[in-house]
């Protein structure tokens, strides 16, 4: 049985921690080198022979090099699973870009000349896709990406990081896998919808009720494990088991919904952010609040043997209200 020695970025995020727990139960995983910006205690797991932790600020180029040619080489890491993207949508600027894009680019380039690494798996997101009226509502991997010049940095960075990895596919000696995951509706997972549903009243565009697809934590972890177990490379959509209209989502979350004319929504949500400090940004979500965007997971079913299986727990756990 071949074993994997894994470097996992974003290890202290909820998905990262859950993944580490799952990997420690997997006999094919020889060692997990978990990487995060927080102290090791935030991982909440005992370090030992199969789990080590490095506190690294991936925004710094020197730190990235030290990580790969220091601890990663010492532990004979064979696979990088890169999940670290900045989660707060309200933040922007060069330092955010450094984490989202430059870290991805450099980790990939460093891995190419690394003596032991031969695989690079990038956890991208469905936010990279362009959702408009005249494009398919069921989104396959060839769907146009959101390259609009007016797209917010949160989206631009994700598209750039995704493309940075995709352009190396077939050119690099590494086996490269990109997973474009549906939104994982969980706290602290960078979910815009989760923040949206924190308000007791959810505003949505009058006259539109698009279909959404959501990923549970269980399926998110399972898709990453299947990617680790797979020798293939390519781009794969990772849909979730919950496909439902926005209105139904709001109802299931136990929130009151108020449809309003589109021009009012942006200012009202900006006001809410200014007064209550929400991370939800309407400008990031306005298109998908109008037009359906459901991931087509058939390639992942064929290539990774991944099929969504676990529905979200309704009502959502960990939510206030």
């Amino acid at each position: 049985m071949s074993t994997t020695r894994l470097l996992l970025t974003g290890a202290t995020t909820p998905i990262g921690v859950a993944l580490v727990r799952a990997l420690l139960d997997d006999p094919t995983i020889d060692h997990v080198l978990a990487v995060g910006r927080e102290p090791a205690a935030s991982l909440g797991l005992p370090l030992g022979e199969r789990l080590s932790y490095e506190r690294v600020d991936l925004r710094r180029s020197r730190a990235r090099r030290r990580l790969l040619f220091g601890p990663a080489r010492e532990r004979g890491v064979t696979t990088i699973l890169h999940t670290a993207l900045h989660r707060r949508a309200q933040d922007s600027g060069r330092r955010i870009h450094d984490l989202n894009v430059e870290a991805t680019r450099e980790l990939l380039h460093l891995a190419e000349r690394h003596p032991t690494i031969d695989r690079f798996i990038f956890r991208s997101s469905a936010a990279v896709y362009r959702i408009v009226a005249d494009k398919p509502s069921v989104i396959d991997e060839e769907h146009p990406l959101n390259l609009g010049p007016r797209a917010p940095q949160w989206i631009r960075d994700r598209v750039e990081a995704d493309l940075t990895v995709c352009t190396q596919m077939g050119l690099s000696r590494l086996k490269i896998l990109v997973l474009r995951c549906a939104e994982c509706l969980a706290p602290d997972a960078g979910s815009q919808l989760y923040d949206y549903l924190q308000a007791p009243v959810c505003l949505r565009p009058l006259g539109f009720d698009p279909m959404l697809n959501l990923l549970s934590m269980g399926d998110a972890i399972r898709s990453l494990r299947l990617a680790l177990a797979c020798e293939c490379e390519g781009i794969f959509n990772i849909p979730g088991a919950d496909t439902l209209p926005l209105s139904r989502l709001i109802a299931l979350a136990g929130r009151r919904q108020v449809p309003l004319p589109e021009p009012l929504l942006g200012p009202l949500y900006r006001l809410r952010t200014a007064t209550l400090g929400s991370d939800f940004r309407y400008d990031l979500n306005s298109w998908r609040f109008h037009f359906s965007g459901v991931l087509d997971g058939r390639r992942a079913a064929a290539g990774l043997d991944y099929r969504p299986a676990t529905r979200l727990d309704w009502p959502l756990s960990g939510a206030s209200g």
Binding site: S137, M211, D242, L244, R248, R311
Partner: peptide, 8 residues
């Protein structure tokens, strides 16, 4: 999953 098909 929720009484709707993928296309709505």
């Amino acid at each position: 999953g929720h009484g709707f098909d993928s296309l709505g």
